[in-house]
Nucleic acid binder design. Sequence first.
DNA 1: ATGGGTGCAAAGTGTTTGCAAGTAT
DNA 2: ATACTTGCAAACACTTTGCACCCAT
Lengths: 135, 135
Amino acid sequence: MKQQRMTKQKQLVQRIVQSHHDHPTADQIYLEVRAIDNRISRGTVYRNLEQLSDAGIVLQVKVPGPNRFDCRLDYHYHVICNNCGAVFDLPLAYQDELDKKVSKTTGFQIDRHRTIFEGLCPTCKEKQEQETPKD
Amino acid sequence: MKQQRMTKQKQLVQRIVQSHHDHPTADQIYLEVRAIDNRISRGTVYRNLEQLSDAGIVLQVKVPGPNRFDCRLDYHYHVICNNCGAVFDLPLAYQDELDKKVSKTTGFQIDRHRTIFEGLCPTCKEKQEQETPKD
DNA sequence: ATGGGTGCAAAGTGTTTGCAAGTAT
DNA sequence: ATACTTGCAAACACTTTGCACCCAT
C-alpha cells in the first residue's frame, strides 16, 4: 500500500466523521467540512473517506442510496427507516458463527456479513398513522 | 395503486428474470431482453422491473454496486464475491425472531432485514492463492 | 526534491423521468 | 376513448478520475 501523508483536509474530514454518532453520507460530511473550510472539494472528501475506510479508521455502511460512514469499528447491525432514511445502530451482537457456517457450507472465504433492518422509525410510523387514521 | 396493463415488453422482462437462478442486474436483463427484441429500451426494462418488484413477483437484492433481481420470493440471505461480484443464495433460515426483537428494542416497525455475506468465492480464492503462492 | 494530495471540472455508472406517440383495456 | 406504456434522450444522483499545481515528508 502507498505511503500516506497527513494534510489539513484529511485531518478535517476525519474530525468531522468522528464527531458523528449518526451515519452521515459523504455529501453531509462534505457540507460540514465545507462550512469550516470552503475551499475543500467533493473529490477530496470522497478520496479521504476512502482512505480512512481502507485504513480501518471508519467503516462504510452500505444501505440503499448513498453510502454512509460510521466511526464505530466493531461489526454491528443497522436499521434504516424506509420513509425518512435515518440510520441507527442496533444493540444486537454480531453473529460470528454465521460466517463460519456459511464458509463451511459454500466454500467461500467469508470476511464478514452485513445486516440491515428495514422499516419505519417511531416518528414516521406515528406520522403515517395520523394521515390515515382508520384505513 | 395504478391499474396495470400487460404488454409484450413486460411479459418478456418477466420471462427473462424468472429464467434466472442467479441474480442478474437490470443491465444484464436489458441485454438479454434486447437480444430477443432489439427495440426495447433500458427505461422500459427498469420500469418493468420496478413494477414486478412492487407487485411482489420478483425481489430486489441490494448489494454494493447495481441492484440485482431474484425470482425467489421467500426472504433469504445472499453471499457476494468481493472479487468477481457473483451473488449466490444461501441455505440459511431467515431469522424471523430478529425482526421482532429489533422492533421491541427500537420502537421501529420492522418489515424485514437483509443479510449479505461478503468474501471470496472458491474460484477467486484459488486464483488469488496462485498469484501469491507463499506470501 | 519527490511523489502523494488538492481543486477543479469532466466523465463514469446506474437509474429515473418528461414527452409525444403507441396500445391494452 | 381512455389512460397506461413505450422509446428516446435528457436529466439525475452518486462517485471516480485526469490533470496541473501544491505541499508534507
